[in-house]
């Protein structure tokens, strides 16, 4: 369901925008949520994230993605991929990720927690 049809608070969160706040805007089937990702591949893919997202600490404007649960990372990336979350940079980055690649990223980031 698109952001604007949800409650005003969620809409604001979705719009401003890249915060990895778990908003569960979409229903993901268990077979996608349960894919076992390859953390080594995830580490390579994550190097793309680290251009903007700091591994240590955070910076204004780009939220930290460290300490976010595996499930929330998977859901957030699928939300960007389905354009439920609005940030165009993140929509573009998520668009080219396969379900397996999203699982790989989540597996890698979980290992940093």
């Amino acid at each position: 369901m698109p952001c604007h049809l949800k409650g005003i608070l969620t809409a604001i969160v979705c719009f401003f925008y890249s915060g990895l706040v778990y908003s569960a805007e979409i229903e993901l089937p268990a077979e996608i949520l349960n894919i076992v990702g390859d953390p080594e591949y995830g580490e390579y893919l994550a190097s793309d994230c680290k251009t903007c997202h700091k591994v240590e600490g955070s910076a204004p404007g780009v939220p930290s993605i460290i300490g976010v649960s595996k499930r929330d990372i998977i859901i957030a990336l699928h939300e960007y991929k389905q354009k439920v979350r609005k940030n165009p940079v993140m929509q573009m980055m998520a668009k080219r990720l396969s379900n397996e690649e999203i699982a790989a990223l989540a597996a890698y980031f979980e290992g940093l927690n």
Partner: peptide, 14 residues
């Protein structure tokens, strides 16, 4: 603009 500040901080850390 704020996102660009975050990016600058991220890329220079990287």
């Amino acid at each position: 603009y704020e996102e660009s500040i975050g990016w600058y901080s991220g890329i220079t850390a990287d």
